[in-house]
Amino acid sequence: MTTSTSERSQAAIKDEIRAEALALGFSACGFADAAAAWPNGEWLREFVEADRHGAMGWMEETLERRAHPTAMWTEAKSAVVLGVNYGPDIDPLEQLVRADRAAISVYAQGDDYHDVIKKRLKVLAGWMHRRFGQEVKVFVDTAPLMEKPLAQRAGLGWQGKHTNLVSRPFGSWLFLGSVLTTLDLPPDPAEVDHCGRCNACLDICPTQAFPAPRQLDARRCISYLTIELSGPIPAEFRSALGNRIYGCDDCLAVCPWNKFASLSSEAKLRARSALRQPALAELAGLDDAAFRALFSKNPIKRIGRDRFVRNVLYAIGNSGEAALMAVVEPLLSDPAPVVRGAAVWAARRLIGDRALSLKGAEDHPEVLAEWN
């Protein structure tokens, strides 16, 4: 079969873009039709209508813009979808063994990947604009673009039963970013589902956050509870948190496809020594300045000191280490009600009704509810 000149030139353009992307440090690059039919918008609408987005009101507010890749930019014809490998050097499930130490999601142990990837995307997009003279726009997951189904269409992987992207060469460890462009390029073959009958990611979830394969109820997800939820975490989920203080990797880490994944070579995305299972006692004592210093250029900084210490206190309550009362007791009078409430829960878990003798003057209803 012969190939037309225009098809050869389109293939050459794709080859150039792919080579440039890999040279910039991206691990994977694929191409998708940005204007093709898109059933995923309706699936997202059903997710929001079922209130499974919880307190993430921004998902409802941006629903129409998320409905289709061209909803934000009608001129877009092609999507260049990029992946960056962040495969960890240890099994994340090993972090759950020591109850006096914190388990932090793999993606949050290094520099903020949004910043790392967005810089590269901008460089790639600028090069594309200069090289081919077409318009471009850059997206990371802070923008209302559904990148996981777009990545599947571009052949980078498939959405597993845990709703995250799974890649044959990188397992569940790919950060995603996209460049939409007015370049009209032929799409790569879409990846197909390779999960088969495996339900490991569903079975391991500590809070049963998956009502069905490829369906997530964010209100039960530990990542949502520890990151997105600003108030007290519902009591029914606190024990299941264990020592997870920011995010949860269980469903990702158990995926059998990870056995083919390579270790990330990204120095900025690798775990900082201070964030490899830090001691809960040290984290509980962070004031705002120390919190900001420890998590400089790190995604955890976004949730703020109060929400973070709240998570640490729940982990302390789950530790069974009565000696940690030494760091819990001062936080019973913390200025932030969400911290005081978590400190009450931790104290009562560690020393039972003896904690009642530590009750001081309190008028915040959520904290009083913890005491009562």
Results as ranks from 00 to 15, higher is better:
Y246N: 11
W257L: 11
Y224R: 01
R238G: 12
Y224P: 04
I233S: 08
S223A: 14
E266H: 07
L252H: 10
F237P: 10
E236P: 01
C255R: 05
P256V: 02
N258W: 10
D250G: 04
A253D: 10
D249W: 07
V254I: 15
T226Y: 04
C251W: 04
N243Y: 05
W257N: 02
N258Y: 09
S265C: 08
C255I: 00
G242H: 09
K259L: 09
C251I: 05
L241A: 01
R244S: 07
I222E: 02
S239F: 11
Y246W: 13
E228K: 00
A235F: 06
D250Q: 14
D250Y: 01
I233L: 05
V254P: 05
P232K: 09
C221G: 03
S264Y: 10
I233N: 08
Y246M: 07
L263Q: 14
P234L: 06
I227S: 10
G231Q: 08
G247N: 10
P234G: 09
N243E: 11
Y224M: 00
L252F: 13
A240G: 11
R238N: 03
E236T: 10
E228N: 00
S264M: 04
I222H: 06
E266I: 06
A240V: 08
A253G: 10
I227G: 07
C248E: 07
I227W: 13
L241D: 11
T226F: 06
F260H: 15
K268H: 09
A267V: 13
P232V: 09
E228Q: 00
N258D: 11
P232W: 00
I222D: 00
L263V: 15
E236V: 14
Y246T: 03
P256T: 01
P234F: 06
S262L: 13
I222S: 05
S223W: 08
W257C: 05
E228H: 07
C221E: 04
D249Q: 03
L263M: 13
C251D: 03
A267T: 15
G242F: 07
G242D: 08
L229P: 00
